[in-house]
Amino acid sequence: MIVLVMTVLLTLLAVITIVIIRQRSLFAVVILTGVYSFLMASVLIVLDAVDVAMTEASVGAGVSTVLLLATLYLTQSREYPQPRPAIIPLFVALGIGGALIAGTFGLPPFGSADTPIHNRTAPRYLAKSIEETTVPNVVTSVLADYRGYDTMGETVVIFTAGIGVLLLLLGRRRRYSSETGEEIQGE
């Protein structure tokens, strides 16, 4: 049953991706990206990754879509027809895709429990989480306790990106006020 639900959701994801590739209107692309994120969140729920699904639905479908729409408002929302040939990218994509698919046949089948990743660190987290951290949600205890330094690194990355965005956009506002909005003509 789970395999069937997964198959349907993943096929929908693939269809949405094809539409995103072919779509020329950037507004439609942004909205389809939101749909894609919600589908991805559904797939993640089927895969038991409930915390990841919640983050993907709020951050992937929410924040990303808002950021993309804001950028469309500040720039232009039409994509021009492709002037250059797409044969080399297609060739690169098909080559890499073929090699990777050949590699997947060596991977264990979906959902099996006797694979290496289920037998090393994860059982220890699952067995000791309540005893050592008193948190029943193991994802929380690993994120905030066992691998807390990872999360600190993540926060540093977000902080750096935030400073970068602020620096880039602050220069913009300064120029607007000094040139009395002449840049708007670029639209």
């Binding site: 895969l47 990754a49 992937g60 994860a122 987290y125 994120l143 990355v157 977000i158």
Partner: peptide
């Protein structure tokens, strides 16, 4: 199910949005 990939991907989602924001700026 294994909680470790979930933790890693939680980090990856947030970092992905940070890079997207910087790229859009």
């Amino acid at each position: 199910s294994n909680p470790l990939p979930h933790v890693l991907i939680l980090t990856a989602i947030v970092v992905g949005v940070a890079t997207l924001a910087l790229g859009l700026a």
